[in-house]
């Protein structure tokens, strides 16, 4: 356990430092979620007038959706870092050292989590400026961050695991796009579940992306149904743990290819 914690710390520091040394990347990552909130906010402003749409303000409704989209579009690419390490030889050097494999996965997840928390807080501030009310208050925002981090852990691990299996950037891009777009459209990220076709409503019940949106939206509402929130957070935690475990096993698949 001790090497897992210390190695995760060293490797996370490495990843965060590398990110901070790319100011353009940092700037884009900070601006992008803001743009989504502004664009979707304008585009779908009148969607709340559709019958069956319960929420009062679309910005209030949209904020958890934009946070989740941000998770998918950054954590889904986590595996690119693994592929760069493979191409460079960093991966082989690490695997020939007594480094904890789980730490290699955990550090990537923590790196994603830090990015997501910063990005989400920016989205929250912009939403407040646009007139969102967030009746759930600080606790509601915290629940949204936890849900986002758990979802990020799951997607970053899947992306890393896939990177270890496919080993090329092109294949990983294909996989990531194929997974993230349908999962976000088959959730209530942008549209109220009640306004979606019946089959999507059914599918979304089993979609972790939707769990994250629903848990956040519920916690941010005036009168949260906490059992619904915790059931979904629990589900997200389970998915994240299984994804980290599976992805760590993918190192074996990578080593078999050597």
């Amino acid at each position: 356990m001790a090497p897992l914690v210390s190695h995760s710390g060293y490797l996370t520091a490495r990843l965060l430092r590398a990110t901070l040394r790319q100011p353009a990347f940092v700037a884009i990552s900070l601006v992008q979620p803001m743009m989504w909130l502004l664009l979707f906010g304008q585009l779908f402003e009148r969607v709340v007038e559709i019958p069956g749409f319960a929420a009062g303000s679309y910005i209030d409704f949209l904020t958890p959706g934009v946070v989740v989209m941000t998770v998918l579009f950054s954590s889904g690419w986590a595996g690119m870092g693994f592929i760069e390490d493979m191409d460079r030889g960093v991966m082989d050097r690490m695997l020939a050292s007594p480094i904890s494999r789980m730490a290699m996965m955990v550090s990537s997840v923590v790196n994603q989590a830090v990015a997501i928390v910063v990005q989400s807080l920016i989205v929250v501030v912009v939403a407040l400026l646009l007139g969102a009310e967030f009746a759930g208050g600080v606790v509601g925002v915290l629940v949204m961050l936890v849900a986002a981090v758990l979802l990020a852990a799951a997607f970053a691990s899947l992306s890393n695991g896939m990177a270890l299996v496919v080993r090329t950037q092109e294949s990983l891009i294909g996989f990531s796009t194929m997974l993230t777009l349908p999962l976000s459209f088959m959730s209530s990220a942008m549209m109220a579940r009640e306004a979606a076709p019946g089959w999507i409503q059914t599918v979304s019940r089993f979609n972790p992306v939707d769990w994250s949106v629903v848990a956040s939206r519920e916690a941010l509402s005036a009168d949260p149904d906490w059992s619904a929130v915790f059931a979904r957070l629990g589900g997200l935690l389970a998915v994240a743990v299984v994804a980290v475990w599976l992805a760590t096993r993918a190192f074996r698949s990578y080593q078999r290819s050597l």
């Binding site: 490495r14 082989d92 050292s97």
Partner: peptide, 26 residues
Amino acid sequence: VVTQRSGTDPQATGRENLLLAGRIHG
């Protein structure tokens, strides 16, 4: 181990690369 491909992290400094390698070994 010194592999054919470099194995150093291009985004980190020389010192950071060495320190990380040392810390992984305790």
